[in-house]
């Protein structure tokens, strides 16, 4: 999933490796990650990044993500 722009940072979440543990929901200081509501092929509700977030690419979500499913970019 590709989320984007007009902000300082954004993340990409690999929906297929996400196990819906929701650890990133809790630690994201900008509350930018939430449940996508869709189930991936392993049967987990994966996380998604909200487009209108204030993400500043702090990288916390990627540090805590147990599945290494999140990549973080700064514009």
């Amino acid at each position: 999933m590709k989320a984007k722009v007009k902000m300082k940072g954004y993340i990409e979440i690999n929906q297929e490796s996400c196990k819906g543990c929701q650890i990133c929901f809790y630690f994201c200081p900008k509350s930018s990650i939430s449940d996508s509501g869709s189930i991936n092929s392993s049967g987990y509700f994966s996380a998604c990044f909200s487009d209108n977030s204030e993400c500043n690419a702090c990288g916390i979500c990627a540090i805590v993500c147990p599945e290494a499913a999140i990549e973080v970019y700064r514009e």
Binding site: G9, S42, G59, E71, V72, Y73
Partner: peptide, 16 residues
């Protein structure tokens, strides 16, 4: 665009 965090290189492309 600067990459802040990337999946580690030595981690195989495989689901845990």
């Amino acid at each position: 665009i600067k990459t802040v965090y990337k999946r580690p290189k030595l981690l195989k492309e495989r689901l845990f």
